[in-house]
């Protein structure tokens, strides 16, 4: 009959082997996850600059704001883009202090995809109105976002692209940002 010490030794050895095997499995999964990106580079991934996005995915166009309220600066703190399963470019900007996202600009070929593409969304709409954005019909909404902050959003369509700008601030600044994207 085995002593308790020997039994604990068996369990410990087994645990070690299991951890090694689990690590191999995880490493394999990581490699499997990267393989499609080697074959094609148009899946959703992070980019360092908008120029990289333009070079890699060659999107039809990427509209960039030229106006930023005080405390928000170019370049974006996060850029991710994809061509599959639909084209999309998302830019996030942090506010003063550099921690929290205060501005999100998305463009995609799939209508309504902003809910999936934005980590912050306007969930409690207090006001909703139509707005003429330099000749383009847009929807302006004001309310509370899912992070509890007051926010406003503007959505419009230009040809086959759907744009959404979400700002943790008043709609007046939001309108200026949106208008700066259209030339």
């Amino acid at each position: 009959m085995e002593t308790p010490v020997k039994k604990i030794g068996k369990i410990s050895r087994g645990l070690l082997w299991f951890l090694v095997m689990a690590a191999v499995v995880i490493a394999f999964l990581t490699a499997v996850n990267r393989m499609p990106s080697v074959i094609r580079d148009d899946y959703a991934r992070k980019y360092n600059t908008i120029e990289e996005v333009k070079l890699s995915l060659k999107p039809d166009r990427v509209l960039i704001p030229s106006y930023f309220p005080e405390g928000i600066f170019w370049p974006p703190s996060l850029i991710f883009a994809q061509k599959r399963p639909y084209k999309a470019v998302v830019m996030e900007f942090n506010g003063a202090g550099g921690k929290d996202t205060v501005l999100i600009v998305t463009e995609s070929t799939l209508k309504g995809s902003d809910a999936k593409l934005q980590r912050i969304s306007l969930t409690d709409v207090k006001e909703k109105t139509e707005y003429n954005l330099k000749g383009k019909p847009a929807i302006l909404q004001v309310g509370i976002c899912n992070n509890g902050a007051s926010c406003s959003s503007m959505t419009w369509q230009d040809n086959n692209l759907h744009f959404t700008v979400l700002l943790m601030s008043s709609p007046f600044e939001l309108i200026k940002i949106a208008e700066s994207m259209i030339h």
């Binding site: 995880i26 999964l29 990581t30 499997v32 996850n33 499609p36 990106s37 074959i39 094609r40 899946y43 959703a44 599959r84 399963p85």
Partner: peptide, 10 residues
């Protein structure tokens, strides 16, 4: 760790 969509849309 794994995003199946990357494979499915190949």
């Amino acid at each position: 760790l794994v995003d199946a969509n990357k494979w499915f849309f190949l």
